[in-house]
Write a protein that binds this DNA or RNA. Structure first.
Lengths: 180, 180
DNA sequence: GATATACGGTTGCGCGTTCAACCATACCGT
DNA sequence: ACGGTATGGTTGAACGCGCAACCGTATATC
């Protein structure tokens, strides 16, 4: 008994729209609370755990945006003083981006609004088991499309309340995944 | 034993990225095969089963785009001769959009590429049971966010093999969701 | 060492979307 | 009837993103 095209298309429409609804909620919450866009917040999130900075191309891979896209996102963050560009002398063709103290502070503030809104628009409606199942299915989707990267799919947020502290993955060794 | 924030955020990142990957694949396939954007295809899809036309505002609700957004999407479709605007004499403030023969033809062609790509990038990687589970979870998400509308979540594609013609909805729902 | 190639990043441009303002039409209370 | 309000649609400006072209730097080949 195979699923009909209607069922498959329906499932995809659900995916499309659920993502849209949650994403809009997050965008709006972030913009309202700190003026950050979701992409900017994501960059700050990545940089806040990458002590030695990240290359532009790695950020692009992490966020699934183009090279020019990440250039502009970082442009805006640099302009607001939340991120710093840095060209390492030993390899002068890359640009390392590092979070500034002001950036870390902004991220901490934004993280509050982010987690709260994620709870309201996402996790609140799913049981813990649901979340794991959803994660598993979507991960299979990513793997099937060759879009699976371990480090990309775990945004390292610092836990706020004394919840189980994450095992601080520090091997941010970028795999240079530009499939351009 | 509650799921950690990391797990929730991770699940959301999966949602975000899986959607992005599938959407990109569909966009690209449609553009390559027929020059249509995903939004334009979606409009054609809706119109192809709405015999008596759809109002702009209804289309906007169906696609989850803004009023101005749907104006421009329809503009492009009208300009390529795939869709017709029509102002009913009995209510001259609405605009009914109807698919033209050329539009129906274009949709038929596009549908092939669409279904094939959806299979390749989506359903291919999930079992039938998976698809149903996924659908159920995402639907719960939509319901939880008050974004559930029966008719929106079933894109009526014509099955190649036997189908059931969907009932056609005539008058507008007052609850259109451009909560602007 | 000189030339070719690959890699990383930025820039110009076009496209598509939203927001806010606006216009037109229908609906409602009096 | 008549003003006020709500509804449906379009328009202009701004924004964010991707594509392609470009430049600078590192690496490979000879």
């Amino acid at each position: 008994m195979a699923s009909t095209n209607q069922e498959r298309v329906g499932a995809w429409v659900h995916l499309l729209q659920a993502n849209q609804v949650v994403e809009n909620a997050l965008q709006q919450a972030l913009k309202a609370s700190t003026g950050l866009s979701l992409a900017e917040f994501e960059v700050l999130s990545r940089l806040s755990v990458a002590g030695s900075g990240l290359r532009m191309v790695d950020l692009a891979g992490l966020l699934l945006v183009s090279k020019s896209g990440i250039t502009r996102i970082v442009d805006r963050l640099v302009h607001s003083g939340l991120v710093r560009r840095e060209v390492p002398p030993e390899n002068r063709r890359v640009v390392l981006t590092r979070i500034t103290p002001a950036g870390a502070e902004a991220f901490d503030r934004a993280q509050g609004a982010f987690l709260e809104t994620l709870e309201q628009s996402f996790s609140r409606h799913l049981s813990d088991a649901d979340i794991r199942v959803l994660r598993r299915l979507l991960r299979r989707l990513l793997e099937g499309n060759g879009a699976w990267e371990e480090e990309r799919c775990s945004m390292h947020l610092r836990e706020r309340s004394g919840e189980s502290a994450p095992p601080e993955r520090r091997t941010a060794r970028p795999g240079s995944r530009s499939s351009s």
